[in-house]
Structures are given as C-alpha cells and as structure tokens.
C-alpha cells in the first residue's frame, strides 16, 4: 500500500528532476560561463545603477533587450549574440514589445532626447502610450548651481514656469540607456535561422528598377525610414522641437542644391552647429554605421522633397562618395 504511493510520487519526482537537470540547470551552468563577445564591456557603476532603475520601474515589461535574426528586427540592430549578455545579470531580455527593442538605443537617440522623452514621452512622440516618468525629475523655481535644466517644449513644461531638473536616478537611467550600443560583429549571422541580417540588404533588390542610367528614389521607403529613425527628434511634421531638435522643413542644409552638409550630418552626426541662428541643445547621432547608402539616399530624398522643401535629389553613389571622404 505504501509502496504504490512511493512508486508513483517518487518516480514522478525523480523523472522530473532528471529532465530539469538536462533541460535547464545543466545548460544554465554551461551558459553562465559564456565569455563576453568582442567589444562587450561591463557597465560603469553609474550605468549599473541606471540598470537597476530600469528594472525596479519595470521598463522591461514593455521593452525587450534582445534582437532576433529576423527581418522585422533589423531596425533594432544586428541579432544578439551569446557574448552580448556576459555582463547582463539579472537578465532582461524581456518578452513583450509594447515599445521598441532598446538593445541599440544608445546609437539611435541622444541624452537630451532621453530626458525629454522620460519626462513626457508625448513631448517627442505624440502617439506614445509609454507612461511619463516625471517622478524621476524635480521641478524647481531656479536651477541650482551645477545642474542643467532639461529642455522641455513649452506645451509640455510645468505650467507655473518651473524648471525641470533630473534626479540622480534619472541621470543613472539615461547613462544606462546611452550605454545600450551593440558592439559590431562584421557579417554575424545567428543560428542559420530564418532571414537573418542578410535579408536586411534584400529591400535594395526589391527597390523599383532604376530607369536606364538613372536612380529612382523609393518615396514610400524614404518616408517609412524617416518616421522610424528620424521623426523621434525632427518630428513627422519636419518641424523639430524648439530649442532641442532643429526643423528640417525649410532647413538651409536640407533645402540646398549642394547635398554635402545634409549627407555629412546624417552619416557622421552633428553637435554645436548653429542652425538658423539657434544653437540646439540636442545631439544628432551618427547613422553612417546603421544605415546603408541606399537607405540614406531614400531618407535624404524624402526630406529634400517634403514639407515644402524642393531640393535636387541625391543618389546612393553621392552618399558613398561623402562616406568615403570621411568625417
């Protein structure tokens, strides 16, 4: 009588333990020793603190930190490699993308943008459903010595004219977000899985056939790329955010027969340039390492032909030339 009981329960328990060892604990022991990939470095103490702010406020429930070898993940970077996670404990790969993947967000957005977005996501992304994190900021009458006010568009700034400054937690969080930059692994393809980054180049092939001897700009692609890579700062309306991100509508660099400055800015980024008499607080990230010549040409042409701009179109070979000329 007792025997039956121990056979069933003991057997079921034992079998389970064996399976768990084989499927979970064994592999985990092995995987925990994965060495860091090339260029993968530990976080600084400040970034580490920011990672903790990220976890304790549950950013991970809306944002993943893993890129899959699938075409739809191409905007987020190259596929994640095992070595990317050597220092990422606790793991925060995440399971849901209510918001975009953040693996490579440090390469896409600048600090000023991050502060503004955290204070009120709708200040830079009108349709966003991300909660505001105003509790990571303080509103003060006068900016204390050694602090800088976060630039917030007037419509989103405190109504009583108070200035917004970041708390230590916000600074740490932004330091962490800015650290999210993938170390490049040339030609890396994972698992031989479906698609993979190789497909990233595929759209070029499907671009409309070039008319004899010429280059045709893909307007739909240009708009889509602009909306996903540039609109966060320059806004879909091309009007920018006053004081932080310059307008591209009627912009002298964009609406200009000579595309050199326009393309150079996209390829290499910019900071500290006075545009239309205004010095902008934000930083324009470099996109040369993230976008192909073809993509850049499509984006540039979209900008050059939208919001009343009428500049001569550019070709991918012009982009290649300016890329080759270097910074």
């Amino acid at each position: 009588m007792k025997k039956a009981m121990w056979t069933i329960f003991g057997g079921a328990l034992l079998l389970y333990i064996v399976i768990v060892m084989v499927i979970a604990v064994g592999p985990a022991i092995d995987l925990a020793q994965t060495p860091p990939g090339p260029g993968v470095v530990p976080l600084t103490p400040l970034q580490e603190e920011g990672r903790q702010v990220f976890a304790s406020n549950g950013c991970d429930y809306c944002h993943t930190l893993q890129v899959r070898p699938l075409p739809e993940d191409v905007p987020f970077g190259r596929p994640s490699a095992p070595g990317d996670f050597a220092y990422a404990t606790p793991e925060m790969l995440g399971s849901e993308r209510t918001g975009p993947d953040l693996t490579n967000v440090g390469n896409r957005r600048g600090e000023i943008w991050q502060y503004m977005h955290l204070y009120d996501p709708r200040a830079v992304s009108p349709d966003s459903i991300m909660p505001n994190f105003k509790f990571l900021f303080r509103e003060v009458k006068a900016v204390p010595e050694g602090e800088t006010a976060v630039s917030i568009p007037a419509a989103f700034a405190p109504k009583n004219g108070d200035k917004v400054i970041a708390t230590q937690k916000a600074k740490a969080l932004v330091a962490f977000l800015m650290s999210l930059k993938q170390a490049p692994i040339p030609g890396y393809k994972m698992n031989g899985g479906m698609g993979g980054p190789a497909t990233a180049a595929a759209p070029a092939a499907s671009a409309p056939a070039a008319p004899a001897g010429g280059y045709a700009y893909d307007a739909a692609k240009g708009k889509a790329l602009f909306d996903s890579t540039c609109a966060a700062c320059h806004q879909a309306s091309g009007e920018g955010v006053p004081g932080a991100f310059p307008p591209l509508k009627g912009n002298a660099a964009v609406d200009n027969a000579d595309p050199t400055l326009h393309l150079h800015t996209i390829l290499h980024g910019a900071h500290g340039v006075t545009i239309g008499g205004v010095a902008y607080a934000g930083v324009m990230p470099e996109f040369g390492s993230q976008l192909s010549d073809d993509d850049i040409a499509n984006i540039a042409n979209y900008e050059r032909s939208s919001w009343g701009n009428h500049a001569k179109p550019v070709t991918p070979s012009e982009v290649a030339k300016i890329r080759a000329a270097g910074k």
Binding site: F9, A12, L13, Y16, I17, V20, A24, V25, P27, A28, I29, D30, L31, A32, Q33, T34, P82, F85, A86, Y87, A88, T89, P90, E91, L93
Partner: peptide, 25 residues
Amino acid sequence: LWTLVICLVAILPWYQKGLGQVAIS
C-alpha cells in the same frame, strides 16, 4: 512536489548569470 523543485531551481544563484539565467527564466 514538482513545484518545490521549480522554486528551488529559481532561487539558487550559482548558474543564474547572463545567458545561464535566461535558460532558467
């Protein structure tokens, strides 16, 4: 009984580093 094992595996720290922890998750 199985859940006792699950809880224990989830708590023990030694293999929960980086990708090892992903496997446990």
